[in-house]
Amino acid sequence: MSAKARSATMPVVITANRLRDGRVVWLGAGTAWVEALAQARAVTGDDAAAALVLGQQAEKAMQVVGVYAAEVTLSAAGPQPVSQKERIRAAGPSTEAAAQLAA
């Protein structure tokens, strides 16, 4: 999904999986990739398009795989995911506790 297709007012974060270990990462300050959504940089409009370009460059530089923009809402605790998929990517499986329980 391209950032352009989104509503201009909805903030987004740029996200991907890290190439070496596959972990979920978000674009944070500058060109750094962070492991916590709270540290991700939320952007809108032209800034979002520019951030996506940074992400695509990081993909070419073998840092990350599958870069895209994900919608967020803003809160005091940082960006909050909108879709269920992004909530699970940010927080981990909703079943993990149960798996540990079964151990």
Binding site: N17, E59, K85
Partner: peptide
């Protein structure tokens, strides 16, 4: 990892070795 294969080229090769990229890893 050295950039000699793009993800598009690598993906079918890793899949043939059972390796997916899923949500978390």
């Amino acid at each position: 990892l050295a950039g000699e294969l793009t993800e598009d080229e690598f993906k079918p090769l890793r899949l043939m070795n059972g390796l997916y990229l899923q949500l978390h890893a």
